[in-house]
Amino acid sequence: MLRTILHRLLGMIIVMALVVTIVFIIVRVTPGDPAAMMLGPDASEADIAALRTKLGLDGPIITQFAYYVLGLVQGDFGQSIFLNQPVTQALAARAEPTFFLTLFSLLIASIIALPVGILSAYWRGSLFDQAATTLAMFAASVPSFWLGLVLMQIFAVKLGWFDTSGYGGPGASFGERLNHLVLPAVALGVVSSALITRFTRASMLDVLSDDYVRTARSKGMSEWRVVIRHAFKNALIPILTVIGLTAALLISGAVVTETVFGVPGIGNLVVSAVLRRDYPVIQGALLVIAGLYVLVNFGIDMLYLLIDPRVRY
Rank of each mutant, 00 (worst) to 15 (best):
residue 120 S to H: 06
residue 122 Y to F: 13
residue 123 W to K: 14
residue 123 W to G: 01
residue 123 W to Y: 12
residue 124 R to M: 05
residue 124 R to D: 13
residue 124 R to G: 05
residue 125 G to H: 13
residue 126 S to N: 05
residue 126 S to Q: 05
residue 126 S to Y: 06
residue 127 L to G: 01
residue 128 F to Q: 03
residue 128 F to K: 02
residue 133 T to Y: 09
residue 134 T to Y: 14
residue 134 T to E: 02
residue 135 L to P: 04
residue 136 A to M: 05
residue 137 M to L: 15
residue 138 F to D: 05
residue 138 F to L: 15
residue 139 A to M: 14
residue 140 A to R: 14
residue 140 A to S: 15
residue 141 S to E: 08
residue 141 S to D: 07
residue 142 V to F: 03
residue 142 V to P: 02
residue 143 P to L: 11
residue 143 P to I: 13
residue 144 S to E: 04
residue 144 S to L: 01
residue 147 L to P: 05
residue 149 L to P: 06
residue 149 L to S: 08
residue 149 L to F: 03
residue 150 V to Q: 09
residue 151 L to D: 14
residue 152 M to G: 15
residue 152 M to S: 14
residue 153 Q to N: 12
residue 154 I to A: 09
residue 155 F to H: 05
residue 156 A to M: 09
residue 159 L to R: 10
residue 161 W to N: 02
residue 161 W to V: 00
residue 162 F to K: 10
residue 163 D to H: 14
residue 164 T to F: 04
residue 164 T to E: 12
residue 165 S to T: 15
residue 165 S to F: 00
residue 165 S to E: 12
residue 168 G to N: 09
residue 169 G to E: 14
residue 170 P to H: 00
residue 171 G to C: 01
residue 172 A to F: 04
residue 172 A to S: 15
residue 173 S to N: 12
residue 174 F to M: 14
residue 176 E to G: 07
residue 177 R to N: 02
residue 177 R to Q: 12
residue 179 N to A: 07
residue 181 L to H: 07
residue 182 V to S: 02
residue 185 A to D: 00
residue 186 V to Y: 08
residue 186 V to D: 01
residue 186 V to C: 00
residue 187 A to E: 01
residue 189 G to H: 00
residue 190 V to C: 03
residue 190 V to F: 01
residue 190 V to N: 02
residue 191 V to A: 04
residue 192 S to E: 00
residue 194 A to G: 04
residue 195 L to P: 00
residue 197 T to V: 03
residue 198 R to N: 06
residue 198 R to Y: 09
residue 199 F to N: 11
residue 200 T to Y: 02
residue 201 R to M: 01
residue 202 A to P: 01
residue 203 S to Y: 10
residue 204 M to D: 02
residue 205 L to A: 06
residue 206 D to H: 09
residue 207 V to E: 06
residue 208 L to A: 04
residue 208 L to K: 04
residue 209 S to V: 15
residue 209 S to M: 11
residue 213 V to Q: 08
residue 214 R to D: 11
residue 214 R to G: 13
residue 214 R to S: 12
residue 216 A to Y: 08
residue 217 R to L: 12
residue 218 S to P: 09
residue 218 S to A: 15
residue 219 K to V: 06
residue 220 G to Q: 03
residue 225 R to C: 02
residue 225 R to D: 13
residue 226 V to W: 09
residue 227 V to F: 09
residue 228 I to V: 13
residue 229 R to T: 09
residue 230 H to L: 00
residue 231 A to I: 13
residue 231 A to F: 15
residue 232 F to C: 03
residue 234 N to Q: 11
residue 235 A to L: 03
residue 238 P to F: 13
residue 238 P to T: 12
residue 239 I to K: 11
residue 241 T to I: 06
residue 241 T to S: 10
residue 243 I to P: 07
residue 246 T to M: 00
residue 246 T to Y: 00
residue 246 T to I: 00
residue 247 A to P: 05
residue 248 A to C: 08
residue 249 L to M: 08
residue 249 L to A: 13
residue 250 L to A: 09
residue 251 I to H: 02
residue 252 S to A: 10
residue 252 S to P: 02
residue 252 S to Q: 11
residue 252 S to D: 11
residue 253 G to T: 02
residue 253 G to F: 08
residue 254 A to M: 03
residue 257 T to P: 04
residue 258 E to I: 04
residue 263 V to P: 12
residue 264 P to Q: 04
residue 264 P to D: 05
residue 264 P to L: 03
residue 264 P to A: 08
residue 265 G to N: 03
residue 265 G to M: 00
residue 266 I to A: 07
residue 266 I to S: 08
